[in-house]
């Protein structure tokens, strides 16, 4: 079986790892909310889902559920 001839130095590993870096995702700023977000991705601001500066979805309001429970009593 082939084996490494020599132990390699710490410097050698460190040099190899100089190119090992975290990737930086491109972020853009929403024109209505001013929040930073990933490109082509929607983002939440105060229970509203924004995409391309428009509200796409809203979170269900919890008050409605509370009212129902009161009626049941």
């Amino acid at each position: 079986m082939p084996n490494p001839k020599r132990r390699h130095s710490q410097q050698r590993s460190a040099k190899r790892r100089t190119h090992y870096k975290a990737t930086v995702d491109t972020l853009s700023t929403d024109k209505t909310t001013g929040e930073m977000h990933l490109r082509h991705r929607a983002h939440w601001v105060e229970n509203q889902l924004f995409y391309k500066g428009r509200v796409v979805m809203e979170k269900a309001v919890k008050e409605a559920a509370a009212d129902e429970s009161n009626e049941a009593e």
């Binding site: 975290a22 995702d25 972020l27």
Partner: peptide
């Protein structure tokens, strides 16, 4: 080593940009 991966990116960055970068990073 794992911590330095992200720390090296943040260094010298504008604070808001760094916050956004960390928020959306998967590590």
């Amino acid at each position: 080593r794992k911590m330095r991966l992200l720390v090296d990116v943040i260094r010298g960055m504008h604070v808001e940009k760094a916050l956004a970068f960390l928020k959306f990073n998967a590590q």
